[in-house]
């Protein structure tokens, strides 16, 4: 009994620690005061400011475009990688898919910066950001797809082939419908990661193009206004929807790291 009590108390403490900061941000986004200090009164003012902030709207547009393109590409490449890792157990590919997920983000950021400028002679911007986002998203999609494949009975593929299906037909009519929930979950995951990414974008964005997190970063570095709270609240709402959707499609999202 006492043991159960301490377990509950410690867990409740951990949950409080996880949620209080986010609730504070949400609450202050409706606060009628320039300072994030005390509650003055309810207002929509900061959302109104947000809607008329052209830089912020442009950044939002960039973020959505980058997320859409990079998540589509990462879904295709990640699904292929997931299938290849599961079926052929290729060590080199598995290493290349999983390492970008596991290593400190800054390393991928600076090495891509070096590569884009020094080797490709690319002007940093939308293209470099999209390529960087695809690189780190492939692993997340692949892991979810592989987990999905691991739960499927292999004999089903043999049966399809025995019945005369070509490899493409086996994929199109057997494998793909079975892994589709994992593919969709992986795609949603890649989209969320792209919208949220700060570190790798920071190094590969250059000066001309800002994404939502880059815009938020420069705002909090210069002057904190409750407009940041408003954009944060909206962004939370978006990613929350994405994650809940992704976990509906594939519970593996909850098991793997996100």
């Amino acid at each position: 009994m006492r043991r159960g009590f301490w377990l509950w108390a410690a867990s409740l403490g951990a949950y409080t620690f996880l949620y209080v900061p986010l609730f504070i941000v949400i609450i202050y986004s409706f606060n009628d005061s320039r300072l994030n200090a005390e509650w003055v009164g309810f207002t929509w003012h900061w959302y109104d400011v947000l809607l008329h902030d052209n830089d912020m709207l442009a950044a939002m547009g960039n973020s959505l475009f980058i997320a859409l393109v990079s998540s589509l590409a990462a879904t295709v490449l990640g699904t292929m990688a997931g299938i290849a890792m599961h079926r052929y157990k290729m060590k080199a590919l598995t290493f290349m898919v999983l390492t970008p997920v596991a290593m400190p983000e800054i390393l991928l950021g600076v090495s891509l910066l070096l590569f884009f400028i020094q080797v490709l002679n690319l002007t940093l911007g939308l293209v470099s950001i999209i390529l960087a986002h695809i690189t780190f998203s492939i692993g997340f999609v692949a892991v979810i797809v592989r987990a999905r494949l691991a739960g499927i009975d292999e004999s089903i593929f043999e049966a399809a082939r025995d019945l005369g299906a070509s490899p493409w037909e086996t994929f199109r009519y057997v494998t793909f419908p079975l892994i589709l929930p994992g593919v969709v979950a992986g795609g949603l995951m890649a989209f969320t990661l792209s919208i949220d990414d700060f570190v790798i974008t920071f190094f590969t964005a250059g000066v001309g193009v800002a994404t939502l997190p880059l815009r938020v970063y420069s705002m909090i570095k210069i002057a904190v206004t409750p407009e940041v709270n408003a954009v944060s609240t909206l962004l939370m709402l978006l990613t929350l929807t994405m994650i809940v959707l992704a976990s509906k499609f594939s519970p593996d999202v909850l098991r793997g790291k996100t």
Binding site: L18, V20, L22, V224
Partner: peptide, 16 residues
Amino acid sequence: PFASSFLIRVYAWMIL
């Protein structure tokens, strides 16, 4: 909570 943006979670502590 960690579905929300990394930067927002850091920013929250600026307020707190």
